[in-house]
Computed example of a mutant assay.
Amino acid sequence: MSQTAPRAASPAAPAETLLASFAQAGYAKAEPAILQPAEPFLDLSGEDIRKSLYLTTDAGGEELCLRPDLTIPVARDYLASPIAGKPAGFCYLGPVFRYRGQRPNEFLQAGVESFGRTDRAAADAEMLALGLEALAAFGVSEIDVRTGDVALFAALIDALALAPSWKRRLVKDFNRKTSLAQDLERLTLSTDTARKDYEGVLAALAGSDRKAAHALVTDLMSIAGATQVGGRSVAEIADRFLEQSTLTSGTLPKDIRVLIERFLTITGEPDEALAELRTLAADAKLDLNAAIDQFESRIGFMAARGIELSRTRFATSFGRGVDYYTGFEFELHRRGNGVEPLVAGGRYDNLMSRLGASTPIPAVGFSIWMEALTRFAAAPAGSPR
């Protein structure tokens, strides 16, 4: 089913030492099953992961997959445990499986996940600090720290006078820059200049009862014999089709598009970005205080953790392409290493509810890409190479 990632001896000792340091910081070792239900990954992860899954079906017809990532498996085990809902932290080291073309499709991933902490800004800063400490443990220096916060974009969109369907679409497409740009373009075009062959059908659905329209679309797809397309069920596809029907009507005033584009150009050191965000909110007369205050609080905790803010880059447009992120996001790169991060993570407060939790549970974490890290690492002093 897959190629096997190299299991070189050189990173083993440093990786185990890394896990020991996470344990000392209060993170218990997690070892979730390799075979996982496919539905959470198909429903909650980004397109890149969906397209790279190794899928199978058990005797009962349930679709399963080799875990492509460890965040969702660790979260599922936590929710099934007696401590679900209580503050808890976990670390891990193990193989994950994704189709990656000519590269090994089985490779090691390490990381940390923190659940249930309500001091969100402090927990965010701790994740970033632990990620930086992980690179230091492997002797990696000259690091680019790239950060963003999807909660700021969500707060901006929520404050604007837009149809609910457009708000959902823009926030969902935040991590897909091409889709977001297309959304903004389509919003500012009249329906006469963007007409499709089936737009009349969409317009008719837009004015009908949503429950009845959903049943009609679902029945039509079932009659056509469709069960799943691209990992999505008939019901999910019907939902997206009906959402599309509402997106064909209405246009976006030019001043709102200019405001969104101005927001997405804010970048620089965190303190500089903070000042620009407050200026934008004041100029636009928008109440973004809660999201901006959370950003400012995180900056303070980052500084308290010894993170050099002058070497940290923040961009309002930064996103990681993972659908379940809801707030702080970050990547740590070896300087000059292009787009491939060594460490990456962020906040995903809505994931637990979508995995079945009866009440919201805050969550934040990061993954360490051992394959990339060991290419650049200098083994810590005293460790075998």
Rank of each mutant, 00 (worst) to 15 (best):
P11D: 12
A12Q: 15
A12L: 15
A13W: 14
A13D: 11
F22V: 11
A23E: 15
Y27V: 12
A28R: 12
A28Q: 12
K29Q: 13
P32T: 00
I34K: 09
L35A: 10
A38R: 00
E39K: 14
L53E: 08
Y54G: 09
L55M: 04
D58P: 02
A59E: 14
C65I: 04
C65K: 04
L66W: 09
R67A: 12
D69P: 12
I72L: 11
V74N: 08
A75F: 05
R76V: 10
D77L: 05
A80W: 10
S81P: 03
A84D: 06
A84P: 06
G85L: 10
G89Y: 06
F90Q: 02
Q102P: 06
R103W: 05
F107L: 05
A110I: 04
A110W: 07
A110Q: 02
D119H: 06
A121C: 03
A122E: 06
D124N: 05
L128G: 01
E133A: 15
D144M: 10
D144V: 12
T147H: 00
A151T: 04
L152G: 01
L156M: 04
D158R: 15
A159C: 10
A159S: 15
A161M: 03
P164V: 06
D173H: 07
N175C: 09
K177A: 12
S179G: 00
A181D: 12
D183Y: 09
R186S: 12
T188D: 13
S190H: 07
A194K: 07
R195S: 05
K196Q: 14
V201L: 15
L205M: 07
A206W: 07
A206N: 11
S208G: 13
S208L: 10
D209Y: 04
R210V: 07
A213H: 03
A215D: 15
L216F: 11
T218S: 09
L220R: 04
L220M: 09
M221R: 06
A226W: 10
A226P: 01
V229T: 13
R232T: 03
V234C: 01
A235I: 08
E236Q: 07
I237Q: 11
I237E: 05
L242F: 02
Q244E: 14
L247E: 00
R257Y: 08
R257C: 07
R262V: 01
T267H: 13
T267Q: 15
P270K: 08
A275T: 14
L277W: 00
R278Y: 03
R278G: 07
A282T: 09
K285M: 14
L286G: 06
N289G: 10
I292E: 03
D293I: 01
Q294Y: 02
R298H: 05
G300V: 07
R305S: 12
I307M: 02
S310L: 08
R313S: 14
R313P: 00
T316F: 00
F318M: 09
G319I: 04
R320C: 10
R320N: 12
V322E: 02
T326Q: 02
F328Q: 08
E331R: 06
R334C: 14
V339I: 08
V339K: 11
L342K: 03
L342Y: 00
N350G: 15
M352L: 15
S353W: 00
S358L: 14
V364C: 07
V364P: 02
V364S: 03
F366Q: 13
F366W: 14
S367D: 08
W369V: 13
M370F: 10
E371Q: 15
A379R: 11
R385N: 14
